[in-house]
């Protein structure tokens, strides 16, 4: 994979990216068509499909699918959920070309208006 990236050949990266792009296409279709029907049930943020999409985008088909599978099993009726981000990858995107899923999965969280109340709630 790294070899393919260093040779900035137009064809090799394209072929290497085929499995990744197939999975990305499938996930985008799922999120557009099936996910809305099934509703909002995921215990985590980002949801399992968003996690999978980011994982495959950042880590490629093999590691991405592995990470996503682990996540789906983590998201079971006996877990408490929470925020669970994809581990950082080595892939770097040029300025302004960050994939949309990366933006959506890492929203800036505005500070609470009354920080004291929030801290009190956290301390309880």
């Amino acid at each position: 994979m790294t070899e393919a990236r260093t040779q900035r050949d137009a064809v090799v990266p394209f072929i290497v990216d085929i499995p990744r792009n197939l999975i990305i296409g499938f996930l985008l279709g799922y999120r557009k068509l099936i996910s809305p029907i099934y509703g909002d049930v995921c215990k985590y943020f980002p949801s399992c499909s968003a996690y999978a999409l980011e994982a495959v985008t950042v880590h490629g088909a093999v590691k991405g699918v592995y990470l996503a599978t682990k996540r789906v099993f983590r998201c079971n009726p006996f877990s408490h959920g929470g925020i669970d981000q994809v581990p950082d990858g080595r892939r770097i995107w040029p300025e302004g070309k960050l994939p949309k899923i990366m933006v959506m999965n890492h929203p800036p969280i505005p500070a609470d208006e009354d920080e004291d109340a929030a801290n009190a709630a956290r301390g309880a």
């Binding site: 215990k43 943020f45 009726p77 408490h80 959920g81 929470g82």
Partner: peptide, 15 residues
């Protein structure tokens, strides 16, 4: 989601 985790209760069913 973070709130649910903090309270150790999550009403979402997971898939």
């Amino acid at each position: 989601r973070e709130l649910f985790k903090r309270h150790k209760t999550n009403p979402l069913s997971s898939c």
